[in-house]
Design a protein around this nucleic acid. Structure first.
Lengths: 212, 212
DNA sequence: TGTACATCAGTGAACGCGCGTTCACTGATGTAC
DNA sequence: TGTACATCAGTGAACGCGCGTTCACTGATGTAC
């Protein structure tokens, strides 16, 4: 096994001419590039390099750079959806569940900055891709559900308009908070502290200004 | 005048070997590129091309591509600051002034998408540039002033913490709204209508959920 | 169980492209006398 | 008012770079018989 001759371009995990798991390896490579250099620093050649494969290899798995990134973005939306659903399961009070969900949104963004920025970077993705839309809508639905429950706790049956307005407000707030945090606009306020503890300290009370 | 021989590479507005106004022409060119292709589509060579000048010419006015873009971003922050100050001058009720200011923030973003995205795209700007920080802080101060007046209308003397929290909430909301709008995430809701009318229709009521 | 062969998943060299930056240069302008 | 000359603001060719994509190819795998 270990004695098997490895081809010149080989890399840890690679054992022969066929990679065996190139599709997943390229996705992992893409995510690591995104973390280090953001969506703009991504290149297909670099992803191939990190997967230990020739520059032409990705063609067999993804139509193009945008195709690979679209896959990563779809996976990102799916994980965000999971995080939001999970957060809405915590706690008995609808209001605190909604707040937990907002915190989960921002935590996802700072935990996976590359992936998050990519998800909202349509120029880098396949245009008008149905999977992206569907994955985005699924995440939106989680937020909508939490808002509906929250509003339902006050008036018996919230109107669709009221729900939509509150979703717009909550989504804008957490999205803006996440973007500003990732762009370093809070660095002066954060000072020595860690960004995560700043979020934990400030975000819930910020969200409480909206949900009261 | 009109009969004057123009050099081969000449372009409207150019009249001789010396451009005469290259610095401003490059800034204008940069803004037009940003509008068309976003911060990622910017290149110094293209800016030089649009200004009707050789690729090496910008060196005499800006240290690098990041230097030119930093200039554009600083101007953007200055204009945003003006818009915010202006908005806070409209209306007698502090609450409606704050809401007007939020609307002005988003209107600025959709009116100058390239400039706006650039301002929050630190990877494209000179790192740790003092002018950017100062220009950003000036805009922040406008928002802070409006929030302080708004909160002051309720309790007699709002605490700094309360002001900071409200600023964070308001800034996050308008910034997120703007980013999501520019990224096309509202396109399904907008449908046939124009983005500006969607903003006018939805944003004030969204902000009212926060300011009440 | 062995063999022939189609298919799959890679290689690696080559393409043309646009980029930022450098270099020696030169035309235009402004100033000193 | 005229002239010499320094300085400024451009030119355009060249550099090396990394990119996405193409191409003819080949090693490995899996299947039919």
């Amino acid at each position: 096994m270990g004695a098997k001759r490895a081809p010149k371009g080989s890399v840890a995990g690679r054992q022969g001419y066929h990679h065996g798991n190139l599709r997943e390896a390229l996705i992992d490579a893409a995510e690591s590039i995104l973390v280090e250099h953001g969506p703009e620093g991504f290149s297909l050649r670099e992803a191939a390099r990190r997967a230990g494969v020739s520059p032409a290899a990705p063609q067999h798995h993804f139509s193009s750079a945008a195709g690979l990134l679209t896959e990563v973005a779809v996976l990102g939306f799916k994980e965000l959806t999971d995080r939001l659903r999970e957060a809405n399961g915590r706690g008995k009070i609808a209001r605190s569940r909604l707040i937990e969900q907002g915190v989960a949104y921002v935590r996802f963004a700072v935990a996976h900055p590359g992936r998050f920025q990519l998800m909202f970077h349509h120029r880098k993705l396949l245009p008008a891709d149905e999977r992206i839309h569907a994955a985005g809508r699924a995440a939106y639905s989680e937020l909508e559900a939490a808002v509906r429950e929250y509003l339902g706790a006050h008036s018996k049956r919230p109107s669709d308009g009221a729900v939509a307005a509150m979703v717009l407000a909550a989504w804008s707030m957490v999205h803006g908070f996440a973007q500003l945090a990732l762009d370093g606009k809070f660095d002066e306020m954060v000072e020595g502290k860690d960004l995560s503890s700043f979020i934990d300290a400030m975000l819930p009370s910020t969200l409480r200004l909206l949900c009261r």
